[in-house]
Simulated assay, not measured.
Amino acid sequence: MKASYAKPFFVAALIILADQIIKIWVRTHMYLGEEIKFLGNRGMLHYTENNGMAFGMELGGEIGKLVLTLFRIVAVIAIGYGLVHLIKHKYHRGLIMNVALILAGAVGNIIDSTFYGVIYKYAPLFHGRVVDMFYFPLISGHFPKWFPVWGGEDFVFFRPVFNLADSAISVGVILILIYQKRYFKQEEPEVSSPNSEVVEE
Rank of each mutant, 00 (worst) to 15 (best):
K7N: 03
F158H: 09
G33R: 06
E62R: 13
I15T: 01
F10M: 08
S193I: 01
H46L: 14
K2L: 07
G94R: 05
G60V: 09
V107I: 13
L86Y: 08
V191S: 11
M97K: 07
V76M: 15
L70N: 14
A75M: 05
W146R: 03
Q20E: 05
P137C: 06
V99R: 04
A168S: 15
Y135K: 10
H29T: 14
Y5Q: 07
A12N: 01
S167Q: 02
I119W: 10
W25Y: 10
T114L: 14
Q186C: 03
S113M: 07
I87Y: 05
L138K: 02
V76F: 12
V191T: 06
H85N: 15
V26F: 04
I16R: 06
K7W: 13
A78C: 10
P124Q: 03
Y122K: 01
G172V: 00
W25H: 08
W150S: 10
H92N: 14
V74K: 13
S196A: 10
P8H: 04
G61T: 07
F155P: 00
R27H: 13
D166T: 00
N41V: 03
V149E: 07
A18E: 08
I87G: 02
A54Y: 01
S193M: 12
P148L: 14
G152N: 02
F126S: 06
A168K: 06
L17S: 09
I77V: 11
S167W: 00
V11Q: 02
D19W: 01
Y116P: 05
R72M: 08
F162C: 05
S193Y: 12
A3L: 12
K145F: 12
L45E: 03
L101S: 09
G60T: 11
H85C: 15
E187K: 13
F10E: 06
I119N: 00
D154C: 06
I178F: 10
E62K: 14
